[in-house]
Design a protein around this nucleic acid. Structure first.
Length: 307
DNA sequence: ACGCCCGCCTGTAAGC
DNA sequence: TGCTTACAGGCGGGCG
């Protein structure tokens, strides 16, 4: 059914990319489908921004991968619904269908971007002037939801195209009190709020359901109706569910769509409590998992365990 | 102003 | 059996 890369899948890719491509120099870039680089005026423009550059480090903001280049530019990768990033040792290996971009390194090997549904994209971002020459004195930058100065905050300033994203739940830790304030400020149903990238970045349909089950809260509870205990449960559930999924290298569902950098499946789908488990017994109370449509999306939950 | 819903896409699977 | 149709969903934009 679904194999959408969310924060845990993208973080797994980031960790592997960090080891595999940091320090590598880009020899050539081939674009087979211009739609994947649609933010650029042309594929040639995209290529020219990358060729000859080397990759310094790899970070992540929500579901976006950030490959930092040696000239302060950033190659941004978003996998959309069906994107895959694959590290291949030699160029002779057969290219999968829908291979839209191939980045070849000078020391051999290549990075392939595969995306059947083409909802994903790649683009090169240039930091704004204010970031290029940071004032030595002051860290007076503020973020939309104020998540402190974690790696997410740095990335947000460096990549203006991603300035709309909310805090990153793994990179930008915050106090429960701060989280409670944000929940009251952004009044909405809990599932809609968790999936709102401008509130918190990186959570999609699968992990929002898993987080809400872990928190014992229904998808339609209003965010300003939580008690102090419930607020803490939600924050803990969010951080711990995502961290646990990262440990298991993400979820590869029935469609096998998500694959890591080496083409391997994730391992967390077996730990899912509710997602894609309609009619199956709740692992906690044995009552059947219910599926409803909320905000146009499939929503799974336990009527007994979530209130 | 804000929330909902469409359009973008292809692969898969249910339905006739 | 084979074709058609529905569905899956991240995200941006438009409409109510």
């Amino acid at each position: 059914m679904v194999g959408v890369p969310e924060l845990p899948e993208v973080e797994t890719l980031r960790q592997d990319l960090s080891k595999e491509v940091s320090g590598r120099r880009i020899k050539a870039v081939a674009v087979a489908n211009g739609r994947s680089v649609r933010r650029h005026a042309s594929a040639k423009h995209f290529r020219s921004r990358l060729e000859g550059r080397s990759i310094k480090s790899v970070s992540r903001l929500g579901k976006y991968l950030l490959l930092h280049l040696d000239n302060a530019d950033t190659l941004v990768v978003h996998l959309g619904m069906s994107g895959q990033l694959l590290r291949v040792k030699g160029s002779k290996e057969p290219k999968p269908k829908h291979t839209h971009v191939v980045i070849t390194f000078t020391q051999g090997g290549e990075l392939r971007y595969v995306d059947p549904r083409t909802f994903g994209e790649m683009f090169v971002s240039t930091p704004p002037e204010t970031f290029k020459a940071p004032p030595a004195s002051a860290g007076t930058f503020s973020t939309s939801t104020g998540g402190g100065m974690g790696a997410g905050a740095v990335s947000r300033r460096q990549v203006p195209e991603l300035s709309h994203l909310g805090f990153d739940p793994i990179e930008d830790m915050m106090s429960w009190d701060r989280f409670a304030v944000l929940l009251r400020q952004h009044k909405a149903g809990l599932k809609a709020l968790l999936m709102d990238q401008q509130f918190v970045a990186g959570i999609g349909n699968v992990y929002s359901d898993e987080i809400l089950f872990a928190a014992g809260l229904r998808f339609d509870r209003l965010s300003d109706s939580l008690s102090v205990i419930e607020t803490r449960r939600l924050y803990r559930a969010m951080v711990e569910t995502l961290a646990e999924a990262i440990k298991h290298r993400g979820s590869t569902l029935a469609d096998e769509q998500y694959r890591d950098l080496f083409g391997e499946a994730g391992d967390y789908q077996g730990s899912h409590q509710v997602y894609d488990r309609e009619g199956q017994p709740c692992r906690r109370c044995r009552s059947p998992i219910v599926r409803v449509r909320a905000g146009g999306r499939s929503t799974y939950f336990c009527e007994h365990c979530q209130i």
